[in-house]
Simulated scan of single mutants.
Amino acid sequence: MTNNHTAPYAALIMRLALGTLFLAHFGLKYFVFTPAGTAQFFTSLGLPGGLAYLTMGVELIGGIALILGIYARIVAVALIPILLGAIVTVHGSAGFFFSNPNGGWEFLAFWIVGLIVLALTGDGKFALKPTMMKK
């Protein structure tokens, strides 16, 4: 049975954690690898370099939207393809465990589960509602 008093706070915690992870991964690409370096890495995988900039933008905007609770359920679902892409192109061939060389896909799979849970649970406490955004 779901506790209706604590469930909104659980969704808030999930939103904050997931949003922070996306911002951290954006920061890694932007500040450590640099946008040009990230684009070069994408190219080395056989992907268009421009996709790196799109990915970074989605991570940044999606992370902020999750943290603030702006369309959090929709954003959670929209972010899943970013993680699936990382599994297919980078981490999938490294095996399941993230401690493997080049990192496995277990962490990304768990991250996807968190996004699905948030999408099913709802925005949670202190989420900015779309009606509030219009004011």
Rank of each mutant, 00 (worst) to 15 (best):
P8A: 03
P8E: 03
P8L: 02
A10R: 10
A10W: 11
A10K: 11
A10P: 00
A11V: 10
A11G: 09
A11T: 08
A11R: 07
L12Q: 03
L12C: 02
I13P: 01
I13R: 00
M14G: 15
M14Q: 09
R15V: 05
R15T: 04
L16I: 04
A17S: 14
G19V: 06
G19C: 08
T20Y: 15
F22N: 11
F22I: 12
F26M: 14
G27F: 13
G27Q: 14
L28Y: 14
K29G: 07
F31T: 13
F31A: 14
F31C: 12
F31R: 12
V32K: 14
V32A: 09
V32Y: 15
P35T: 07
P35H: 09
P35K: 08
G37M: 03
G37C: 05
G37E: 06
T38R: 03
A39L: 02
Q40N: 11
Q40Y: 12
F41S: 07
F42A: 02
F42L: 00
T43Q: 12
S44R: 10
G46Q: 06
G46I: 09
G46N: 08
L47V: 06
G49S: 00
G49I: 00
G50Y: 01
A52V: 01
A52E: 03
L54E: 05
L54T: 07
G57I: 06
G57A: 10
G57P: 00
V58Y: 04
E59R: 11
E59A: 10
I61S: 09
I61Q: 07
G63T: 09
I64M: 10
I64Y: 05
A65F: 11
L66S: 10
L66W: 06
I67Q: 07
I67L: 06
I67N: 05
I67F: 08
L68H: 02
G69E: 02
I70Y: 02
I70S: 04
Y71D: 03
R73H: 01
R73P: 03
V75H: 04
A76I: 02
V77K: 00
A78P: 12
I80A: 01
P81F: 01
I82Q: 03
L83Q: 03
L84E: 00
L84V: 07
G85I: 07
A86I: 08
I87T: 02
I87E: 04
I87P: 01
V88W: 08
T89V: 05
T89Y: 15
V90H: 05
H91F: 12
G92N: 07
G92P: 03
S93R: 15
F96K: 11
F96Q: 11
F97V: 08
F97M: 15
F97Y: 13
F98K: 15
S99H: 15
N100Q: 14
N100H: 10
N100K: 06
P101M: 15
N102I: 09
G103D: 12
G103Y: 14
G103T: 10
W105F: 15
W105V: 07
E106A: 13
E106P: 07
L108G: 10
A109F: 11
F110R: 10
F110M: 14
W111C: 13
V113M: 09
V113A: 14
G114D: 13
G114N: 13
I116R: 00
V117Q: 11
L118M: 05
T121N: 09
D123S: 13
G124T: 03
G124H: 03
G124D: 02
G124I: 05
K125H: 07
F126W: 11
F126A: 08
F126K: 01
A127S: 13
A127I: 05
A127H: 06
A127R: 05
